[in-house]
């Protein structure tokens, strides 16, 4: 794979990664948000494949397949299952499946994402400076997705949206790891993946309990505990 091909394919994968992350802010339909997340997982896998082909490393390509399978296959599957669980009693299905009243409206969120992209670029300068190259220059993209993930976490009110926000952050960190050093040691990578998988499972169970206890997954209802 020659230099310009490598740079271009990498940029394409990063572009798709970023776009999927940003579009999460735009969609209200939770099923569509999960689809976008899966798409981002595919882009992340493709990014790692490109890095692996560049370095001629079979190991890295194998890791890429694993990363893709977890983030584009298993995690979206789990979330879709949480989404398909029918709500108990009176038909609030329409309310449940959509992010109806985010704390910040969609248009403002999108403009905020633009600001976050600039912040991410400014913050990531030391990282790029240490070893400039096509891969490290894409670190701002990963950090933008990280900040967008935070934004989703803070401003969205459905339980599932928060899970997606958390996973966006995690995707972004994984992308940073691969872009800077082609990944952390395998033991750590496996541990991190397991932790993330278990965290999503735990959150899924808690979502079910929340439906049982609160009759919905609107996080605005979580007001029992305060000082």
């Amino acid at each position: 794979m020659n230099d310009s091909m490598y740079a271009q394919w990498l940029a394409l994968a990063c572009g798709a990664f970023l776009l999927a992350g940003v579009l999460v802010l735009w969609r209200r339909d939770l099923a569509a948000i999960v689809r976008l997340f899966a798409l981002q997982g595919v882009a992340l896998g493709a990014m790692v494949v490109v890095l692996g082909l560049r370095q001629g490393s079979v190991h890295l390509v194998a890791v890429a397949v694993g990363v893709g399978a977890l983030r584009a296959g298993l995690l979206p599957y789990l979330m879709r299952r949480a989404l398909d669980t029918p709500p108990p009693g009176n038909g609030t299905a329409g309310e449940e499946a959509r992010e109806t009243r985010p704390l910040v409206n969609v248009a403002t969120s999108l403009l905020a994402a633009a600001v976050l992209a600039l912040v991410a670029y400014a913050v990531s300068q030391p990282i790029v400076r240490l070893s400039p190259g096509p891969a490290t220059q894409a670190v701002p993209v990963a950090l933008t997705v990280l900040l967008v993930g935070f934004f989703v976490l803070v401003t969205r009110r459905r339980a599932l949206s928060q899970v997606v926000g958390f996973l966006l952050i995690d995707n972004a960190i994984t992308a940073t790891a691969f872009l800077t050093t082609s990944g952390v040691p395998l033991v750590v990578e496996l541990g991190v993946s397991l932790d993330v998988l278990l965290a999503v499972l735990v959150l899924q169970v808690l979502t079910t309990r929340m439906r049982a206890a609160f009759g919905g997954t609107d996080l605005g209802e979580l007001r029992e505990l305060h000082d």
């Binding site: 990498l10 940029a11 993209v141």
Partner: peptide
């Protein structure tokens, strides 16, 4: 999207 396009054209090598 347009702003991200500018960002991408400046920041990404490819």
């Amino acid at each position: 999207l347009a702003l991200l396009a500018v960002a991408a054209s400046f920041f990404l090598a490819g």
